[in-house]
Computed example of a mutant assay.
Amino acid sequence: MTPRIDAHQHYWRISERAGHWPPRELSPIYRDFGPGDLTPELEAGRIDGTVLVQSLPTVEDTRYLLDLADETGTVLAVVGWVDLKAAVAATRITAFAAHPKARALRPMLQDLADDAWIDDPALDGAVAAMTEHDLSFDALVMPRHLDSLYAFARRYPDLPIVIDHAAKPHIATDEREPWCSAMTRLAHLPNVHCKLSGLWTEAGPAADVEAVRARLHPYVRILADLFGPQRLMWGSDWPVLRLAAIRGDYGEWLSACEDDCERLFGAAAPPDVFGGNACRFYRIGV
């Protein structure tokens, strides 16, 4: 039976995030979040395990996540951080990859001043080390980064890449272009995958959950058409999900995505979207 996997969630200690996001005014997420907080949601959603994703661009944060993974059975894979342009990048990637649950790296591209940071041959050494150790790449990007991500994905066709949160389209204002055209180009590359995550927090205010779901339907359909049931994977983006204007409820988001995927792909496809694809991409169980 295919495991059910949440392909994108975070844990953090707020005391270690001074000067980093989230700010104090984001009260729904301005506190510590650990495995004990997420366990009831996983049990209610019948989720077997998760992919724990970095949220600070520090070696210390990645070390903290790996330590958590050692003691948390539901954490099946870790997406960490390394400065991919540092002179010692290859050495640090090798050290990261030595952990049994280390599976991918994620530079925080959305926070960098240079939107084209990723389109740079200076990454050759780091990517070579990643492919040597069977690591994947999580792309934390926004629509403005997609042209540079396309150049990066073409330069490294052997590197598995997943676009986090579908590149955060401007759903609240329903601006589908140039996001749709850029995602279409990326979807033509077989090494590029996409996460069905983070979309409720991009949807803006609405009267109720059904209104949010209706607002998201065109975007989910675009992603389904582009990536199909074999390159799309579900993630909660918990606890950031708590910022969604309408509710931010884990179970509601999961149910909405299950309904959409069954409608778009048929009943046979959801096991891949809700577990199988994440297992293959992150080598869970390998």
Rank of each mutant, 00 (worst) to 15 (best):
T2S: 00
R4P: 05
Y11L: 15
Y11H: 15
W12T: 02
I14Q: 12
R17W: 01
A18T: 14
A18F: 04
G19C: 10
E25C: 03
L26T: 12
P28Q: 13
P28A: 11
I29C: 09
Y30P: 04
P40C: 11
E41P: 00
D48I: 07
G49Y: 11
G49N: 09
L52C: 10
S55P: 06
T58K: 09
E60W: 01
E60N: 00
T62S: 11
L65R: 07
L66K: 06
D67K: 10
D67A: 14
A69L: 07
D70E: 15
E71I: 07
T72R: 12
G73T: 14
L76F: 05
G80T: 15
W81Y: 15
A86N: 05
A86I: 06
A87R: 12
A90F: 02
T91V: 14
R92H: 12
I93A: 03
I93E: 04
T94Q: 15
A98N: 14
Q110P: 07
D114M: 01
D114V: 00
D115R: 11
D115E: 08
D120T: 04
D120M: 02
D120F: 03
L123G: 03
G125M: 01
A129I: 10
T131Y: 03
H133L: 02
L135N: 10
D138V: 05
A139S: 11
M142L: 11
L146A: 03
S148F: 09
L149S: 06
L159V: 10
P160E: 04
H165M: 05
A167H: 03
P169H: 09
I171Q: 08
A172N: 05
T173K: 02
A182G: 01
A187T: 12
L189D: 11
C194Q: 04
C194E: 03
L196D: 08
S197P: 05
L199P: 06
W200R: 08
W200E: 12
W200Y: 12
A207E: 14
H217S: 08
L223C: 09
F227L: 02
P229D: 08
P229F: 03
Q230W: 04
Q230P: 01
W234T: 12
W234I: 13
G235P: 06
S236Q: 09
S236E: 08
R242Y: 01
L243M: 12
A245E: 14
I246S: 13
W253K: 00
D259N: 04
C261S: 00
R263Y: 04
L264P: 04
F265P: 01
G266M: 11
A267C: 05
V273S: 07
G276E: 00
Y282C: 04
